[in-house]
Amino acid sequence: MSLKNFKEALIEKIIFLSGIASIILVILIFIFLAKEGLSLFKSVHLGDFLLGRRWHPISEPPQFGVLPLILGSLFVTLGAAVISVPMGIASAIYIAEVAPPRMKEILKSGIELLAAIPSVVLGFIGMTTLVPFVKHHLNLPTGLTAFSGSVMLAFMAMPTIVSIAEDALTAVPQKYKEAALALGATRWQAIHRVILRAASSGIVAAVMLGIGRVVGETMAVMMITGNAVRMPTSLFQPVRTLTATIAAEMGETVRGSAHYHALFAIGIVLFVITFVINLIADWAVHRKLK
């Protein structure tokens, strides 16, 4: 084999390995997560784990019910979605269809900057400004609530939602808009009857990826949601999310203990949730009208 051929073959191999590296990593992570997490169910019943209302991992005997944590994540996520989805889509429409070119550039860089802020910084800002604000103005015993977390996380979901939805809107061919206007549609009619519908799959994907980001977020929620493990009944009380539980407790567990395995089992729950969200986003992108 000549040197040149050898080089070609080598480069091909390297590219191939880099290409499949991410898949191999995902598989390894999943196997590790499954191995560490599933062994919890040797001692704890799956139903007691998912539907149990008490998370007392260091009591005697310990109780590993993650329902309050799932609900905590759900409350914070839904709250963030209610704020960020309408705002994000409206903002994407403004950038893609309405804003003059200069405004568009300014807004797009603004959104990118927002995405670049580390979550711990957002959490810090939330802790020092939003939390006291919520406590004072809503007259609550504490500002560390699911609501505060939702507001903060909405800011983190916005960049994802805006930039992906804006791409989807911009990708709608100009000819549809022209056709609508030539039929006597006003600009808003052209936007909501044609452009939004043509971009709907991309917008759904944007929303799902934004929500995915919120579900997986850890640092900011840990700082501002109060971390109280109890069944949440309202947005205006402290909650603990799945992610915050893992981050807060992993350092104090004994490797191989039931508590340790339970935290990995929470990891599996998170993995399944984000997997389903990504699946929906993927389905939305590829779905077509017959």
């Binding site: 061919p173 000819k175 549809y176 022209e178 056709a179 609508a180 030539a182 039929l183 006597g184 549609a185 006003t186 009619q189 009857r193 044609v194 519908r197 043509a198 009208l289």
Partner: peptide
């Protein structure tokens, strides 16, 4: 009314394309 160089039906159903005008007006 205007017909364009490249056909530009909306990415909607055939019926929705025809009803676009009556609906917006």
């Amino acid at each position: 009314g205007m017909v364009f160089q490249r056909p530009n039906p909306f990415p909607l159903s055939i019926a929705e394309n025809i009803l676009f005008g009556p609906q917006i007006h």
